[in-house]
């Protein structure tokens, strides 16, 4: 009887000790946000274009973590879908055309002599890539522009174009096994 009591008390004591350790650990090492969302957010192209139907890349990352489709990101394209599929352990599917097509990288360009300085595009830009003030001409900081397209719609005078990113010799990439050749004399 006494031995049973000892055994019980030993177990209870151990349970209390481990419980205390676990309790402390859960407070000490608390994970504030879902790490999966962070990882997904890392994979998304951060254009903040909203083509997925969510107001930014992070909300879409959250949606994916909660089981939304992974093929709603046209700027990321198939490469991003593949990465997300790997992370989520699901089958990679092709891009949902309802959200747009994968396109060449573009940047916004403001035809400056037509700009009336309404600041509407500045308010629309998710990454503050447009500089300008009320009633003065605006312009796009090309290096910061993510090509999200969001500034085009609000422009009352339609002076914003999306132009393909300039590729010079510096940012050209080998893209085929055969170098294009021209008949030379």
């Amino acid at each position: 009887m006494v031995s049973v009591f000892y055994a019980l008390s030993a177990l209870v004591l151990m349970a209390l000790i481990f419980g205390a350790i676990l309790g402390y650990a859960s407070v000490r090492f608390k994970v504030k946000s879902d790490p999966l969302v962070e990882q997904l957010d890392q994979l998304l192209p951060q254009t903040q274009c909203g083509q997925c139907g969510y107001p930014g890349c992070k909300p879409y990352a959250e949606a994916i973590a909660n089981g939304d489709d992974i093929n709603k990101c046209p700027p990321g394209g198939d490469a991003t879908i593949k990465l997300i599929a790997d992370l989520m352990g699901v089958e990679a599917v092709s891009l949902d055309a309802a959200h747009g097509e994968e396109d060449v990288k573009k940047v916004a360009y403001i035809r400056e002599d037509e700009c009336i300085g309404c600041t509407k595009c500045i308010q629309a830009c998710p990454v503050d890539a447009i500089v300008g003030a009320s009633k003065v001409m605006h312009t796009v900081i090309v290096d910061e522009c993510t090509g999200c397209d969001l500034c085009v719609e609000p422009c009352p005078v339609d002076c914003i174009d999306m132009v393909p990113l300039h590729t010079g010799a510096a940012n050209w990439k080998w893209d085929s096994l055969v170098i294009p050749t021209k008949t030379v004399a």
Binding site: L44, P45, Q46, T47, Q48, G56, V127, A129, E144, T146
Partner: peptide, 16 residues
Amino acid sequence: EEKLKAEKAKRRFEVR
């Protein structure tokens, strides 16, 4: 490069 750019865009977006 794109990853760096995405990081920058994310930061700018968050700051905004």
